[in-house]
């Protein structure tokens, strides 16, 4: 595990959102390495490759073509190789149903995409600096959704 920077992967089919995401990390004064993938299939291809470097935090958009975030979440949670990856759901909607389902499937946090760039930066910096060990132990349905 490289401790110099935080390795982050985002799977999102929306080009604008990927742009906001990378821009936000560029402006944040956190040492990060950000990789983006256009959909679930691309993401899983990368993760499943034997020589791939696994990220510390994975941001998953739910609504993606070919393979949805939900399907990726299920596959990742079914493979013990990925057990150390913290999974942040990164979605436009924050419907009870989506929150409930992803919580049950074992996601670590749920971020509703903010409509303000400042808020986005704030949310992302919060997420990448979370002590996941601590967060996961006290995780419940109420603090699962990141409040901004």
């Amino acid at each position: 595990m490289n401790t110099d920077y935080i390795h982050i992967i985002l799977a999102d089919d929306d080009e604008d959102d990927r742009l906001f995401f990378t821009d936000a990390f560029d402006e944040l004064k956190i040492n990060t390495k950000v990789q983006t993938y256009n959909d679930g299939v691309e993401l899983m291809d990368y993760l499943n490759a034997p020589d791939s470097v696994l990220p510390q935090v994975l941001f998953l958009d739910l609504n993606m073509p070919r393979k949805s975030g939900m399907e990726c979440l299920e596959e990742i949670k079914a493979d013990t190789r990925f057990k150390d990856i913290a999974i942040a759901i990164y979605s436009t909607s924050a419907s009870e149903e989506d929150i409930e389902n992803t919580f049950v499937q074992g996601a670590n946090i749920y971020i509703k995409k903010p409509s303000d760039f400042k808020k986005l930066k704030k949310a992302l910096s919060q997420v990448v600096t979370i002590n996941w060990q601590y967060h996961t132990n006290g995780l419940n349905k109420d603090n699962f959704l990141l409040r901004l």
Binding site: D17, S93, K113, P114, S115, D116, F117
Partner: peptide, 19 residues
Amino acid sequence: HDLQEPLRKIQTFLSRLED
């Protein structure tokens, strides 16, 4: 729900523009 997405982008771009 679907209207949220473009609106969110408009707002985000607006906040970028203002910044």
